[in-house]
Write a protein that binds this DNA or RNA. Structure first.
Lengths: 336, 336
DNA sequence: CTGAAAGCGCTTACAG
DNA sequence: CTGAAAGCGCTTACAG
């Protein structure tokens, strides 16, 4: 018969170490007011009993879950990975842990994607997704938005890179190579809107005619493929395509191949995000690095400062994106 | 000044609804022993006060976190996404929630990747990663392993697809197309070992000479590229490559291109996993579907049955993988 | 620096 | 069907 062995509690540790329960609690929270001898005794007892503090009890008694909830779009869109990394680096030193919730995965279960987090009593929310009306954010809940979004959350901090500038960088890179017929395959959402804006600005400044297709709000390989096919059909003279993110650029690469165009000789392609995908041997994609890890670090900073000073004015941090030049862009084969 | 408004508790709800606290608790847990009138009153009060039960308090009082911990390798390797989906579908109806922990992300923080879960007092563990010695799994903790692994966990259930059969399927597909010089690019871990085994068996049965390269334990685009380059160098007569997963196959595609080989005319490539990557327009990769969503459902089933009957014998479920034929495999251009 | 007490917000028997 | 009581395992003041 399997008997569920009761896990050790703080009482067991105290008894084993020959101290009071409060002293164990102090050791757990790294209080300096504990003699070295007793600390050692407690630590030894913890090790020996394989004691792990109960998060539930600690949260309930301490009045704080020490957890921040991160809402991401979808596990498939990998931009969040580096963001999480930066966030975690910044938060763990403060003793905060991270809980991740993916909207698409939970969409059929909870009416409000925040329900779970609210029951957990998260200390703060990180929104790495487009905010929607179905998210009922409690008043006074600290919120940091990661990445540029269409909807603004009143009172929330923002950490993002400057997508307008990035869109300009991408476009000017192509212009600098000698391209004149540069098209943009756009998607939905705040980041895409700014990238489009940067593209339009750079084209205008260079006296070039913009060509934009927006196959869908989605920014997937599929929509990138569809958009680029439409584009090449309607504007066969196009020599360069700027796709709103790396996944779409992957589709653009496939469309070029299916139209019999060589990249970069016949068609240059540039993406956005500097995702792991862009770095593969198969793609070798020129892209714009949106510095997601650094954005994660900025989110952590904003979070910690807001937790200590709840009343301060919201701040918006914008990092400067960087061009990452690889093999999918080059001078156009022939001037048109 | 921002004042943290105290969240409503069960007491507030009871008072607002004009009932006792216990009655509220009963309503929350959907007890049938509650009159309709009172239930409605409670539900209304909950809505009005925007009450959310405290997970910490519920877990502490109830002696159960109602959470299962899922350990995955790495967010970048997307095979877990469908697994989670299947798992969640099976678990939420039982009132269990899922917490995900990614090993690489947490590796620099915790010595034991299970630490967080043990503090949360998860009811069970799902291991969607290769178990390691650093994971100290408490005795009597229900464990289900997802996918084939090198190391066996005594007493754990297993849900996986038959990777040996899948390796055979992939190889026999190539043999059936007329290939004779079929190489395998292998990786580390239990699944890869079985896929290799299936390849070796099929080659032996067909009287063909196996050629295996194992560039690394890692199964990434990078290692797939490196392994295929080595392979094509050493065995230029190779007409087909079976890569141990889709990421490696992506690298194989890049290697073929860099060696000036056309796929599938000069070189057929088959992957494994039927990941979203394989379905892209750019890759159109022939692959083996390992049915990850169904594996997730099987994991859920095993978990629920073990939770109700802790003493039962461990079971191993193996699903039958399926060939997904796309554009990267064809008959060899010329018989060698 | 250390110990006894109260309490966090629930659930769980246990009377009525 | 309903209400008062105990207790889950911690943290937090508060005396000593």
């Amino acid at each position: 018969m399997v008997r569920r062995t009761r896990r050790a509690t703080i009482y067991d540790v105290a008894e084993a170490a020959g101290v009071s329960k409060s002293l164990v609690s102090l050791v757990l929270r790294d209080s300096p007011h504990v003699s070295e001898a007793r600390r050692t005794a407690v630590l030894e007892a913890i090790e020996r009993l394989d004691y792990r503090p109960s998060q539930a009890a600690a949260a309930l008694a301490g009045g704080s879950s020490r957890t921040v909830g991160v809402v991401i779009d979808d596990y498939t869109n990998l931009w969040f990975v580096e963001l999480l990394r930066g966030l975690q680096d910044g938060l763990t030193s403060a003793g905060l842990r991270i809980a991740v919730s993916d909207r698409t995965l939970n969409s059929h279960i909870e009416s409000d994607p925040l329900d779970g987090f609210l029951s957990t009593r998260v200390e703060a929310l990180v929104l790495a997704t487009e905010p929607t009306a179905s998210m009922r954010i409690p008043p006074n809940m600290p919120v940091v938005v990661a990445g540029n979004r269409e909807t603004e959350i009143p009172g929330a901090d923002l950490a993002a890179s400057d997508d307008r500038l990035g869109g300009r960088l991408a476009t000017e890179h192509l212009i600098g190579l000698g391209h004149r017929h540069i098209a943009h395959v756009a998607g939905g959402g705040g980041a895409s809107a700014q990238r489009l804006d940067g593209y339009l600005g750079a084209m205008r400044d260079a006296g070039l005619a913009p060509v934009v297709v927006t196959p869908s709000r989605a920014t997937t390989e599929e929509t990138g493929y569809a958009g680029t096919m439409t584009l090449l059909e309607a504007h066969p003279g196009t020599t360069a395509v700027f796709a709103s993110n790396d996944s779409m650029a992957m589709g653009a690469l496939a469309a070029a191949r299916d139209r019999g165009l060589e990249v970069p000789a016949d068609l240059s392609v540039i993406g956005y995000d500097a995702s792991p995908l862009a770095a593969t041997h198969l793609m070798q994609l020129t892209t714009i690095d949106s510095l997601n890890r650094e954005i994660g670090a900025e989110v952590a900073t904003a979070l910690l400062s807001r937790l200590t000073e709840p009343g301060r004015e919201p701040v918006a941090t914008r990092l400067i994106p960087q061009l990452v030049e690889r093999s999918t862009t080059a001078a156009p084969r022939r001037r048109l």
